[in-house]
């Protein structure tokens, strides 16, 4: 079968900066064919000029019934995307500001032909804590943060250092699963936002790029990999590692498997017939512990089973 198209769910309440992130993606397309679905209700701010100029398909979801799934546009839009003559490599879904991203992720992540890449939740560093106390949307804002694999923290340049520290401590309580990425002007590298980074066939090492906003490290296990150990090692990775992705050989079956890990979410799926490429680790700068992470994963991959 054709591989499932990964969907990155981009959530966040009004004013969180998520539309800026979408606009930035449209303005600076990467090598992947990206389809963008926008599902906001009465607050669409995606730049129309960018939509026109983009070679990616950009779809705004339409009305459906409030009470049941009749006319539900999300499913129809996904089916339409999958049926394109040239289906996209990846879908970025800008969820409605009032949507529960976990529910959206469940819908799109298991939609026939698709799989969930990650839930990215944008949060305005200046206002998010106030929003989280709001009479009407406080619950929702906290629920969105709690569902995040990655939190894209916007406008961090407006905070004093002690405020930034307070905010991080608070986020660690509200969103214990999430990794944090600081962004300015919607600028998250594709490698972090949608995990677009091609595994390098070269030797392990660092590859700084994108104005040093993030770094990658590549790991090529020399022997087939013990998957239970790899899973345990992924669970134990430091919070500075945001994504791990690549193809390795399963020691038990001898088949190639696809490893995809975003924050605390890991998925290992069979990828028979593909050649192992090794694993790419992606982390935002500064990354003091990336060495240790490579080391830990490397050990897990190569040690023999008990």
């Amino acid at each position: 079968m054709t591989p499932r198209i990964p969907v990155t769910v981009l959530s966040g309440y009004l004013g969180s900066g998520k539309t800026t992130i979408v606009n930035r993606r449209l303005a600076e397309p990467g090598p992947l064919r990206l389809a963008v679905l926008v599902n906001d209700f009465g607050a669409v701010n995606v730049d129309a000029r960018l939509i026109e100029a983009a070679d990616s398909p950009v779809v705004e979801l339409a009305n459906g019934c409030v009470c049941c799934s009749i006319g539900d546009d999300l499913g129809a839009a996904l089916d339409a995307v999958a049926a394109l003559p040239q289906p996209p490599d990846h879908v970025l879904l800008e969820a409605s500001g009032v949507a529960d991203p976990a529910r959206i992720a469940m819908t799109v992540g298991y939609w026939p032909g698709f799989r969930l890449d990650a839930i990215v939740v944008a949060a305005d560093a200046e206002t998010v804590r106030k929003r989280a106390q709001d009479k009407y949307v406080g619950n929702l804002v906290r629920q969105q943060l709690a569902s995040a694999d990655l939190i894209a923290l916007t406008k961090t340049d407006l905070l004093y250092e002690h405020q930034a520290d307070d905010l991080q401590a608070w986020l660690a309580l509200v969103a214990p699963r999430a990794r944090l990425v600081e962004t300015q002007f919607g600028n998250i590298p594709n490698a972090l936002l949608i995990g677009q980074a091609s595994p390098s066939p070269t030797a392990p090492g660092y590859h700084g790029s994108h104005a040093d906003i993030f770094v990658t490290a590549t790991l090529n296990p020399e022997t087939p990999v013990n998957l239970p150990r790899l899973k345990a090692a992924l669970d134990a990775l430091p919070e500075t590692v945001h994504r791990v992705k690549g193809l390795v050989e399963d020691a038990e079956s001898g088949e190639t498997v696809l490893v995809q890990s975003v924050g605390a979410r890991h998925e290992i799926t069979p990828a028979p017939g593909l050649a192992p490429t090794g694993l790419v680790l992606i982390a935002p700068r500064p990354t003091a512990s990336l060495d240790a992470a490579v080391e830990a994963l490397s050990r897990a991959c190569t040690e023999p089973a008990d």
Partner: peptide
């Protein structure tokens, strides 16, 4: 929790 069909704002 319930849901908002549009953002309160």
């Amino acid at each position: 929790h319930g849901e908002w069909l549009m953002a309160p704002e």
